[in-house]
Simulated scan of single mutants.
Amino acid sequence: MIKITTQFTILVFVLLGFLGNAQEKKKFSNIPNILQRIEPDDKIDSWVLVYNSYGKGQELKTSGGKISYTPQFSGFNLFPSEDSFYYIAYSSGGKISYIMDVEGLKKFVGKIDNAEEAAIVLAADGYLVDEEFKDLAGNYHEDRTHYYLDLGKLTSKECPYQKTHYTLTVSKSTGEIIQVKDNGTYIELYNKKCANNPRLLKIEKKQEPKDEPKKTTQRK
């Protein structure tokens, strides 16, 4: 009886340890490393990921051998405040093609193979890995059937500029979004031009002018 109880106790601790590791959140790396985790599903002979900053292109990843491509002057970005951009040149059946927007990137990724690809696919719906606030909008955990991603989204470009963070549950088998949980706004910025700036809405009470003391004439 004691032996059975001991075995049961060990089994419980093993299961708890497994579940704990499955629920452990991991922070996403930077955007270039996320993009390098792409594993395209289509029959791609070779492809190259290029990062362009101030007109200079840098190859971040080459898969399947070197290809001859034409440098591009526009592309996609996974973070709205970036001035630079990325693009992918790929060869399929002897033809060179280019990925220059997030919709094309989503199709290039195809079936989701990892959490990074899930984040890339969700970028087509406006979600982002916020590198400045990874605790709120740049991490994930997973179990056998789902990815659980904490991502941000720019929810207002007007006054005030704001970002909201969400927890998205994505099916590993279908790639579909099962659930979206709104966790609220985590950035709200006003500027001087905002008519609804709380500082500008404060009514400054004007001081009433004090009555000057009356001059009295002294009799001699």
Rank of each mutant, 00 (worst) to 15 (best):
1 M>A: 12
5 T>E: 02
11 L>T: 14
14 V>R: 00
15 L>Y: 05
22 A>K: 09
23 Q>F: 05
28 F>I: 05
28 F>M: 02
28 F>Q: 00
30 N>A: 15
35 L>Q: 04
37 R>Y: 08
42 D>T: 11
44 I>E: 02
50 V>I: 15
54 Y>T: 02
56 K>L: 07
57 G>K: 00
60 L>A: 08
62 T>E: 15
64 G>H: 03
65 G>A: 14
66 K>N: 12
72 Q>M: 12
74 S>I: 12
76 F>N: 03
79 F>L: 03
80 P>E: 07
80 P>L: 04
82 E>T: 01
86 Y>G: 03
87 Y>N: 02
88 I>A: 01
90 Y>L: 03
93 G>Y: 11
96 I>Y: 05
106 K>G: 10
109 V>S: 02
110 G>Y: 09
112 I>G: 07
115 A>R: 07
117 E>V: 09
117 E>R: 12
118 A>R: 11
119 A>M: 06
119 A>T: 08
126 G>R: 13
134 K>V: 11
134 K>R: 05
134 K>I: 02
137 A>I: 03
140 Y>R: 08
141 H>W: 14
141 H>E: 06
143 D>K: 12
146 H>E: 13
148 Y>D: 00
150 D>Y: 11
153 K>R: 14
157 K>I: 10
157 K>D: 04
157 K>S: 15
163 K>M: 14
165 H>T: 10
166 Y>C: 08
166 Y>G: 04
169 T>Y: 02
170 V>R: 04
172 K>D: 10
176 E>A: 09
183 N>L: 09
184 G>P: 05
184 G>F: 14
188 E>T: 01
194 C>W: 11
199 R>T: 03
199 R>M: 14
199 R>H: 12
202 K>L: 12
202 K>Y: 01
204 E>Y: 08
205 K>W: 14
207 Q>T: 15
208 E>S: 13
212 E>Q: 02
212 E>V: 06
214 K>I: 00
220 K>L: 10
